[in-house]
């Protein structure tokens, strides 16, 4: 099994993505890994919500630091694209992360089908392991370290 040195976690400001960042931060702290907090900048956000993005950057970093990560272990990335493409790009050079972490349902997404579900599509398309964090996060931090493996 490839050691997990770098983790990317999707963050759109939703409660689910906050849980994902917290979970990923705990895992990164336990493994001594580097964490990339990834925010996808879509067409609508580019058109007029740039201040919102700045706030999210602070929120994302704050969650990671609160979970025990050092500032030097956390990187904020605002990536042009839709959430799925932005996260999949993290698996390619130069990022080449070992694990993707995402909330089970992002902001404004439809549940229950592959369409509109970043988490389900990630599991289908990712070449690295994907951890899907349920709403509210895992029940217990002791559950850390058992991310689901995508094929």
């Amino acid at each position: 099994m490839t050691p997990i040195k770098t983790i990317a976690v999707g963050f759109d400001g939703s409660m689910n993505s906050q849980a994902a960042v917290t979970w990923a931060s705990h895992l990164a702290s336990a493994l001594g890994a580097h964490l990339k907090v990834v925010h996808a900048v879509g067409l609508l956000e580019h058109a007029g919500q740039s201040r919102h993005t700045a706030a999210r950057s602070e929120d994302g970093r704050a969650l990671a630091l609160a979970a025990g990560l050092l500032s030097s272990q956390v990187e904020w990335l605002a990536v042009d694209g839709d959430p799925l493409s932005a996260l999949l790009r993290m698996t390619e050079a130069p990022h080449s992360v070992d694990l993707l972490v995402v909330g089970s349902r992002g902001a404004g997404q439809h549940s229950g089908t592959l369409l509109g579900s970043t988490s389900l599509e990630l599991v289908e398309h990712s070449g690295v392991a994907v951890a899907v964090i349920p709403q509210g996060g895992p029940r217990d931090d002791s559950e850390l370290g058992a991310p689901s493996r995508s094929e």
Binding site: D12, A40, G42, L43, L44, E45, D82, P83, L84, G106, A107, G108, Q109, H110, L115, G116, T118
Partner: peptide, 8 residues
């Protein structure tokens, strides 16, 4: 229907 992503 619904949203495919935050834009679409």
């Amino acid at each position: 229907g619904g949203n495919l992503d935050p834009d679409t």
